[in-house]
């Protein structure tokens, strides 16, 4: 069981949203046998990439737990929806990048995990053109 079995899709095929838009989608796993999943966590989040250490923040978080009363059957599609915030907008800079994504983490027995991710863009900020060439670096600690 790996990420290739997980279907995580957004309803908007372009995956390009504006602040305040409603992001909707669904997730499910392929297969005829139900996965022995203990829990599934769906997050809509942004993280930074580039030269600096990674920062991240979760905008929307859902945790579905396998319970005797409500068994977790991931073969059935699960829908999710959230209203996107005003900031931060997606950004592809020289040394700082802000990336938005929907991430699904499935917790399997014996502590194993399976993760799938779908990226999307928030806002319409074009990549930095790098008008001023050169990056300077200094030791701060």
């Amino acid at each position: 069981m790996g990420p290739s079995h997980i279907q995580l899709t957004l309803d908007l095929s372009t995956a390009h949203y504006q602040p305040g838009d409603r992001l909707t989608g669904r997730f499910m796993v392929d297969g005829t046998q139900p996965w022995q999943a203990r829990a599934a966590e769906l997050s809509v989040l942004w993280y930074t990439a580039g030269k600096g250490d990674e920062d991240m923040s979760v905008h929307h978080f859902e945790r579905i737990v396998d319970e005797p009363a409500r068994p977790l059957d991931l073969r059935m599609p699960h829908r999710f929806a959230t209203v996107l915030p005003t900031s931060p907008l997606s950004y592809d800079g020289e040394i700082v990048k802000v990336c938005w994504c929907v991430r699904l983490r499935i917790f399997l027995p014996q502590g194993q995990e399976s993760v799938a991710e779908t990226a999307f863009r928030l806002g319409s900020v074009p990549p930095a053109t790098g008008e001023e060439q050169g990056t300077s670096s200094e030791i701060v600690d």
Binding site: G50, K51, G52, D53, G93, E94, I95, V96, A128, T129, G130, E131, E132, G134, T135, S136, S137, E138, I139, V140, D141
Partner: peptide, 21 residues
């Protein structure tokens, strides 16, 4: 200006890049 703080070995470094002027 973009600013990024990162660990390099035991040093904490800060890189800057001017992207618009």
């Amino acid at each position: 200006e973009e600013q990024a703080v990162y660990q390099q070995g035991t040093d904490t470094r800060r890189a800057t890049s001017r992207v618009y002027s």
